[in-house]
Deep mutational scan, measured.
Amino acid sequence: KKIKIDLKKGPEGLGFTVVTRDSSIHGPGPIFVKNILPKGAAIKDGRLQSGDRILEVNGRDVTGRTQEELVAMLRSTKQGETASLVIAR
């Protein structure tokens, strides 16, 4: 099931960490939400869960991207702006 979640970045950030699983010589594996932090946009919104697979960030497919690339995409969202995620659960 795909779910679109918009998180408005506040002073505590987006409020979640990510982890890559099953990376191989063929490229990075899928990226999942690792933890929801006690402060930040994710816990206020309440929909994002540990174990959700991140498919898109701000309309860009993240398949084949590294964890570092995904984190850079999320960090490029400025405070007060919205990060738009599509996740699979």
Results as ranks from 00 to 15, higher is better:
residue 3 I to G: 01
residue 76 S to W: 07
residue 17 T to H: 05
residue 21 R to L: 14
residue 23 S to W: 06
residue 45 D to H: 02
residue 88 A to G: 14
residue 66 T to C: 12
residue 72 A to T: 07
residue 74 L to T: 04
residue 89 R to C: 02
residue 24 S to P: 10
residue 26 H to D: 14
residue 22 D to L: 14
residue 15 G to S: 00
residue 66 T to R: 04
residue 28 P to E: 12
residue 33 V to H: 00
residue 45 D to A: 02
residue 78 K to V: 08
residue 63 T to D: 06
residue 26 H to A: 11
residue 38 P to A: 13
residue 25 I to D: 14
residue 41 A to Q: 11
residue 15 G to L: 00
residue 67 Q to E: 14
residue 14 L to P: 02
residue 30 P to Q: 04
residue 42 A to V: 02
residue 54 I to D: 01
residue 4 K to F: 15
residue 9 K to D: 13
residue 35 N to L: 10
residue 30 P to A: 05
residue 30 P to E: 14
residue 52 D to R: 00
residue 55 L to I: 08
residue 87 I to C: 11
residue 52 D to S: 01
residue 59 G to R: 06
residue 15 G to N: 00
residue 68 E to D: 15
residue 89 R to G: 04
residue 78 K to L: 09
residue 74 L to V: 13
residue 17 T to P: 00
residue 32 F to G: 02
residue 29 G to I: 11
residue 88 A to L: 13
residue 4 K to T: 10
residue 76 S to V: 13
residue 36 I to S: 01
residue 18 V to P: 05
residue 9 K to V: 15
residue 55 L to Y: 11
residue 20 T to L: 08
residue 58 N to V: 01
residue 73 M to T: 05
residue 55 L to D: 13
residue 48 L to K: 01
residue 53 R to L: 11
residue 68 E to I: 03
residue 41 A to L: 03
residue 37 L to C: 10
residue 36 I to R: 01
residue 32 F to Y: 09
residue 14 L to Q: 01
residue 48 L to Q: 01
residue 74 L to Y: 03
residue 31 I to F: 15
residue 70 L to I: 04
residue 20 T to G: 13
residue 32 F to A: 12
residue 8 K to Q: 05
residue 71 V to N: 15
residue 30 P to T: 04
residue 67 Q to V: 04
residue 31 I to P: 01
residue 86 V to D: 10
residue 79 Q to C: 09
residue 35 N to S: 10
residue 57 V to T: 04
residue 47 R to E: 10
residue 47 R to L: 08
residue 64 G to I: 09
residue 25 I to S: 12
residue 18 V to K: 01
residue 24 S to N: 05
residue 38 P to M: 12
residue 71 V to L: 11
residue 26 H to I: 15
residue 80 G to A: 09
residue 84 S to T: 11
residue 21 R to Y: 05
residue 68 E to Q: 07
residue 29 G to M: 09
residue 53 R to N: 14
residue 58 N to L: 03
residue 82 T to N: 15
residue 7 L to Y: 00
residue 85 L to S: 02
residue 63 T to F: 05
residue 54 I to F: 07
residue 20 T to D: 15
residue 10 G to A: 10
residue 66 T to M: 03
residue 67 Q to N: 14
residue 10 G to V: 13
residue 21 R to I: 06
residue 38 P to C: 10
residue 64 G to N: 08
residue 14 L to V: 04
residue 77 T to K: 07
residue 59 G to T: 05
residue 72 A to M: 08
residue 54 I to L: 08
residue 18 V to F: 15
residue 67 Q to K: 06
residue 71 V to I: 10
residue 12 E to C: 00
residue 57 V to D: 01
residue 79 Q to F: 08
residue 68 E to M: 05
residue 20 T to W: 09
residue 28 P to L: 11
residue 7 L to T: 00
residue 41 A to N: 09
residue 43 I to K: 12
residue 18 V to I: 13
residue 59 G to K: 07
residue 22 D to A: 05
residue 81 E to A: 12
residue 41 A to C: 07
residue 49 Q to H: 11
residue 63 T to L: 07
residue 37 L to Q: 08
residue 40 G to I: 02
residue 20 T to P: 14
residue 6 D to T: 14
residue 49 Q to S: 14
residue 27 G to S: 11
residue 10 G to H: 10
residue 5 I to Q: 00
residue 53 R to T: 11
residue 64 G to Y: 06
residue 89 R to E: 04
residue 43 I to V: 10
residue 44 K to D: 05
residue 2 K to N: 15
residue 82 T to Y: 13
residue 65 R to V: 04
residue 44 K to S: 12
residue 31 I to N: 14
residue 35 N to W: 06
residue 50 S to C: 07
residue 18 V to G: 02
residue 58 N to M: 10
residue 44 K to F: 09
residue 74 L to P: 02
residue 86 V to K: 11
residue 67 Q to W: 06
residue 76 S to L: 09
residue 37 L to P: 02
residue 87 I to E: 03
residue 5 I to V: 09
residue 53 R to H: 09
residue 13 G to E: 08
residue 33 V to L: 03
residue 73 M to F: 07
residue 65 R to D: 05
residue 46 G to M: 04
residue 83 A to C: 15
residue 61 D to I: 13
residue 20 T to E: 15
residue 44 K to W: 06
residue 70 L to M: 11
residue 64 G to D: 11
residue 8 K to D: 14
residue 54 I to R: 00
residue 38 P to Q: 07
residue 76 S to F: 12
residue 33 V to R: 01
residue 28 P to C: 11
residue 44 K to E: 07
residue 36 I to C: 03
residue 47 R to T: 12
residue 47 R to D: 05
residue 59 G to H: 06
residue 12 E to D: 10
residue 13 G to Y: 01
residue 68 E to L: 02
residue 23 S to D: 05
residue 51 G to P: 00
residue 64 G to Q: 09
residue 80 G to Y: 10
residue 85 L to G: 02
residue 75 R to E: 14
residue 23 S to P: 13
residue 79 Q to H: 09
residue 58 N to G: 11
residue 54 I to P: 00
residue 61 D to A: 11
residue 49 Q to D: 05
residue 64 G to K: 08
residue 50 S to W: 04
residue 17 T to D: 14
residue 86 V to M: 07
residue 15 G to C: 00
residue 32 F to R: 07
residue 20 T to K: 11
residue 33 V to E: 01
residue 37 L to E: 15
residue 67 Q to I: 04
residue 23 S to K: 03
residue 87 I to S: 02
residue 52 D to T: 00
residue 21 R to Q: 13
residue 85 L to P: 02
residue 82 T to V: 08
residue 22 D to Y: 03
residue 6 D to Q: 13
residue 78 K to I: 08
residue 19 V to I: 15
residue 72 A to Y: 06
residue 14 L to A: 02
residue 77 T to H: 14
residue 87 I to A: 11
residue 73 M to W: 09
residue 3 I to C: 00
residue 15 G to H: 00
residue 40 G to N: 02
residue 36 I to V: 12
residue 66 T to E: 06
residue 13 G to V: 01
residue 17 T to E: 11
residue 62 V to C: 14
residue 61 D to R: 07
residue 8 K to E: 11
residue 55 L to P: 00
residue 76 S to P: 07
residue 37 L to G: 10
residue 84 S to V: 05
residue 39 K to M: 10
residue 76 S to Y: 09
residue 64 G to W: 07
residue 3 I to W: 03
residue 64 G to H: 06
residue 42 A to F: 02
residue 79 Q to N: 15
residue 88 A to F: 15
residue 18 V to N: 01
residue 52 D to A: 00
residue 77 T to N: 15
residue 80 G to D: 09
residue 49 Q to C: 13
residue 80 G to Q: 11
residue 89 R to Y: 01
residue 53 R to D: 04
residue 34 K to S: 14
residue 35 N to E: 14
residue 35 N to A: 13
residue 73 M to D: 09
residue 8 K to Y: 09
residue 80 G to S: 11
residue 86 V to S: 12
residue 61 D to W: 05
residue 39 K to V: 11
residue 47 R to M: 09
residue 66 T to A: 07
residue 42 A to N: 02
